[in-house]
Design a protein around this nucleic acid. Structure first.
Ligand SMILES: [Mg+2]
Ligand SMILES: [Mg+2]
Lengths: 672, 672
DNA sequence: ACTATGTTTATAAACAGCGCA
DNA sequence: TCTGCGCTGTTTATAAACATA
């Protein structure tokens, strides 16, 4: 059982209803964004179904679309189409969709657009789906919910308004000073790490001494990042964007002393396992075959760097802006020197845990500019069915509104601050892709089938195609930070409280030849060992770590398995011989040089290895995990890279995580 | 640690050199195939580099290409091209590539062709890569190696010659009667299963009594199949090819009593995990969203059924031939009744463990018919770079020669007999895809980088593009079967030899409310539990179970991340805007109706849900695990379904598995 | 409040291949 | 030269933590 969860996880993933009525208790400090917060009845145009579209208060060319939960997809599409026509074809236009209910916090996602739009944004518009993350400090809810205060896109330095970036700093170490809400802090504090060699006893003892309320030993505490994230950090720290296994080991050890000092040797096995398991990690071999480099599949590369989540006390702002540049067209060349600087040192102190999932999504869609629903013909469909996995860890697929988006949102990389005290909550801004309104409609219908058993009431079939805005499935925000609650004290990796090495029959003893072997091996000798004492160590809880949002990745298998009209939840597109992924579109467009209006996808060879911004548009993602969403969604890439959200939330304390068992419906009565 | 390995695994995966010089000791009984065995200097045309192409002795329209290991890729391509021209465009032509060295055992893979060729094979040719599996009965080798005797494609009833199917029967239960070769049988025999509730103590006790040398209790013994395989068995047992989770549970419990009687409740968690993890399993929801059915991605569906690996004592032959039909064009309708019959009962006795990997591959390629290397233009490339994962579990990618093949080889589904005594060895015949010789060349070059550090010596770059025939990386056969050697005695799942329930703090005790919860949960109460006693149970060894060959699956992500000419081992195709997968071709062809010469891909909607034979051709696969092979290979589908090989080997005993530690080079000196 | 179903991450392991000592 | 061993890669199995209905 692996020491219970090494799994960084936690930071509850929740589905947020698209429309929040905003309990309104939100933290005051985080609201210093450019107005528009908590006030939906502001100006703007009104469209059928109560949909209102207004200019974003601060971002030029950006409109905020407030959608009542009673509005249906057609109304939304109609409003967007009308607005799109109004705006005309001059330049891209961005729409941020907000659920009608609560306060429209802020968007600040305009920065995402330039990146993915870069080079070819003309004629397209993007839509951001924004929901407010819920944050409750106490167990019983509706009050105490924290609201989103700021969205801070990673590439804000590009065109985003100067949002404060210092607010988002999170003390990774200082997280656990509030464990009052924890059900049983003592239990969780027990054996956390799974070191077996007893080598870290001394450390763990000392750590345990200062475990509760004290900032754990920063150097020996397990980082709140998953292996996948750390590998990305490592690889992206190199200009060349590739690393050998050994280099990855070393980088991680250098930046997270935990692995050098505390972790069992098996952590290297886990690194290798992650490299193999996730298709976002690709091994490339030199021509002579002597060296294997691990790279990140460009379409999936979010350009995550430790800089983005880890800040020095002294310079909270410098890092995030710096790394953002990495995702630019010519990222490697420019940022290389700076990155070097950062990666060299040992982690000073602060690390932002990545959140498992975001609550808002950027859903770039392509407006027709001519007619609202033109793409009925199966051929020549520009960006028809590109789909996006969007959703990260946890439940259903995140963004149901957009068809599979090949276009990865490297530009939208953001940091997500965990809902810990002194942390600001954040929202994820995931650019889905450019699709025509039609495509949005169609895919949305498919999305309906995504969450586990969600859309059962979606109506016969005609109504299904609606955007499903009011539906819970469609609008999961995922950011309800109530989860990992009570995590403070248990962080100390103190291994064996009492029986340090007594029964460590696991790794060290076995195969005594090399106890430090990174590949665990069974002790060949033991025959009648005691059954297996479950680790029981309640080591979790303390760290709200993240599960990076998975990138849409290139959609891959269209999954058009059979051409039966549609058996179950298959969307109309499923059976059409249309492009199911932007990738296909892009490919065919090139090969046939007649792909249609979507020639905007940058075939630019300029991007070498870094985060592919443009490429993401065209890259099909491999559906790995969740084909189940419906046939359209099957193209989800399993190892899609995660998105770092850099949205800030204010007023969140470490303690407010304790809301434990609050049901989602409690927080949002409208959900019922 | 999980009770050590529940993992069925084993049945060593080995790399077989493409060119075997044939130790020549092979079993006599298995050689009743149509000549051509062990004699390469037979007739046929001669091409440069010693390449010879001759008609297949029995299969019309099929040629055998004998390639000396000294031949390079260009020569092979040239010869194939010349031959292709000679054959002209009239009808498909199939080439079976054999390494020049050893005996050309037999091919018998013609049956694979009709299936994937079905409906639209005109104008295309296929190439089969065949290597001989090595089988050694004793630890020290060169002698005692068993040779392939028969290849029995699943759909042999279609056009394959009447190969015997009774030879491949394997006594799952009777496997462990020979444990003499095992290094330490006693150790391995220990706690195998990870049941925690102590509920199975009685059983385990009784089992342990008869554990060694005795056929374990067939009803409580863990089946030699992975969860993934069992799920496939279950789903494919239904006409509709879909099943709810509950039905899957029930099916497995009904057919493998182990899970009902012995396994811990966590096995259901594993089932769910596998369903989610592998993208071959797709969840489809009814329109009302009330019911979720799990289906198998048609492109990846090998139509594995328990019938294929499990035979009744009384009727060893009936089953395999029966299930083969399932993969036919109209499989569901036809076979449904028969399958019902089989699935109804409890497993009588015999189960064939599936082998981890196959040793021969069918590599369908498309011949130009006009010029040898025409596809220099990036546009209009018909079946350019489709690639195939081919290789299954274990080391490097299997087929390095063929580009990603979308076309899944449902037709090539075969049963693989494990190298146990009384078992016949088998070869896997995996149809890779249809590609032009050019494509073969290009992708092959990429293949070079596939195995871990293999092709280092492949020469600068021009020589690289060679087929790499003589290289070890390229020719892994995987069937060595020496591995799991010594597995007999430890099969008994006897759990806790001495401390039965004493310290079972794992599952049952924790969360006492529902000890049978399928999702393991940490005991929230334990704080300072003993570290964690490693299960230590040496439960493995006994079962040579299988790892089904993974289907090439539809290649998905072209992975053309950047357009840099080619940094490392990227093949030329990587950078071309060509279709990287047949799927894309197929899609584009339809949508644009101008995809080029490859319009042959069957868009046939006739296939409903069963194993998709035609569809496989066009389906892109998701690259999951082994992108590392090179950029071309990145499209490997991770959860590609496995291929069952039904090739029979004769003269193999259960005991011959004991060859334990024989190094591959020992068996095949030429490898060095 | 609990269960069933789904999704992810962490660990341990078993192996395969390769390269080096 | 042979060989064992360690490193690198690939897969499967389990346990868990969560999310959702
Ligand atoms: Mg990988
Ligand atoms: Mg799945």
């Amino acid at each position: 059982m692996r020491q219970s969860p090494r799994r960084p996880l936690i930071l509850r993933r929740r589905k947020l209803p698209f429309q929040l009525n905003e309990p309104a208790i939100d933290e005051p400090d985080g609201l210093r964004h450019k107005g528009a917060s908590t006030s939906k009845p502001s100006g703007g145009q009104c469209f059928p179904d109560g949909i209102r579209i207004m200019d974003h208060p601060t971002m030029p060319g950006t409109q905020v679309v407030v959608i009542p939960k009673t509005a249906d997809l057609q109304s939304v599409i109609g409003a967007l189409t009308a607005k799109g026509k109004e705006c005309g074809s001059q330049g891209p236009n961005k729409f941020i969709l907000l659920s009608g209910g609560g306060c429209i916090e802020d968007v600040a996602d305009s920065s995402c657009q330039p990146s993915y739009m870069s080079g070819r944004s003309s004629g397209r518009s993007s839509i951001a789906l924004v929901t407010q993350p819920e944050k409750a400090t106490t167990m019983d809810c509706l009050k105490d919910t924290k609201t989103l205060t700021t969205i801070k896109p990673l590439n804000r330095d590009l065109d985003c308004s100067p949002l404060d970036d210092s607010l988002t700093n999170i003390q990774w170490l200082g997280r656990m000073n509030t464990d009052g809400l924890e059900p049983d802090p003592a239990k969780k504090a027990a054996n956390k790490e799974n070191h077996d060699a007893c080598q870290q006893i001394l450390q763990s003892q000392s750590e345990r001494m200062e475990a509760h309320r004290v900032v754990k030993d920063p150097l020996t505490e397990r980082p709140p990042y998953s292996y996948m994230a750390m590998i990305q950090f490592a690889i992206n720290s190199k200009k060349s964007r590739r690393m050998t296994l050994k280099e990855i080991y070393t980088w991680i050890e250098d930046h997270f002393p935990y692995f050098r000092k505390v972790a069992k040797p098996g952590w290297k096995n886990s690194i290798r396992h992650n490299l193999s398991l996730h298709d976002m990690f690709i091994r490339e071999t030199t021509q002579d075959g002597k060296i294997s480099y691990w790279t990140i599949r460009p379409e999936a590369n979010r350009c995550l760097t430790l800089d983005q989540v880890y800040k020095t006390e002294s310079d909270p702002t410098s890092i995030s802006s710096r790394t953002m540049q990495v995702c630019d067209q010519h990222q490697q060349k420019r940022i290389a020197p700076e990155i070097k600087k950062t990666s060299a040192g040992v982690p000073e102190r602060k690390m932002k845990p990545l959140l498992p999932r975001a609550d808002s999504y950027l859903v770039p869609i392509q407006l027709p500019f001519t007619q609202s629903l033109f793409l009925s013909s199966s051929t020549r469909l520009p960006l028809s069915a590109p789909q996006q996995k969007s959703s990260s860890s946890g439940g259903g697929k995140r963004v149901r509104i957009a068809p599979k988006v090949t276009y990865s949102d490297a530009s939208t990389v953001m940091l997500y601050a965990p809902p810990i005290e002194e942390m600001k909550e954040e929202q994820v801004c995931v650019p889905l892709t450019s699709v025509t309104p039609r495509a949005v409609l169609t895919n949305t219908r498919k999305e309906v089938s995504s969450s586990r058993r969600k859309q059962r009431l979606v109506l016969p079939s005609n109504e299904e195609p609606v955007l499903l805005l009011p539906d819970s499935t469609f609008f999961d925000s995922g950011l309800a930070s109530d989860g990992s609650a009570l995590q403070d004290a248990e962080l100390d990796p103190r291994p064996e409280p009492d029986s340090p090495c007594r029964e460590f029959s696991f790794k060290t003893p076995i195969k005594s030849s090399h106890p430090a072997s990174s590949t665990p091996s069974k002790p060949p000798t033991v025959l009648l060992e005691p059954w297996r004492v479950t680790p029981l160590g309640k080591e979790r809880g303390g760290m709200l770590d993240f599960s990076p949002i998975r990138t849409p990745g290139p959609s891959f298998t269209p999954h058009r398995h059979d051409h039966t009209p549609f058996s179950f939840s298959s969307t109309p597109f499923k059976d059409l011989p249309l492009f199911n992924s932007p990738r296909e579109l892009l490919t065919s467009a090139r090969s046939t040089s007649a792909a249609g209006p979507t020639g905007t996808c940058s075939p630019g060879p300029e991007r070498l290895q870094g985060c592919s911004r443009e490429l993401q548009i065209g890259g099909p993602s491999t559906a790995n995990r969740s084909h189940t969403e419906g046939l359209v969604l099957d193209t989800m890439n399993d190892s899609l890279s995660k998105i770092l959200v850099d949205i800030s939330f204010s007023g969140l304390e470490d303690d407010d995580l304790g809301m434990g068992n609050i049901s989602w419906s409690q927080l949002i009565p409208e959900l019922k």
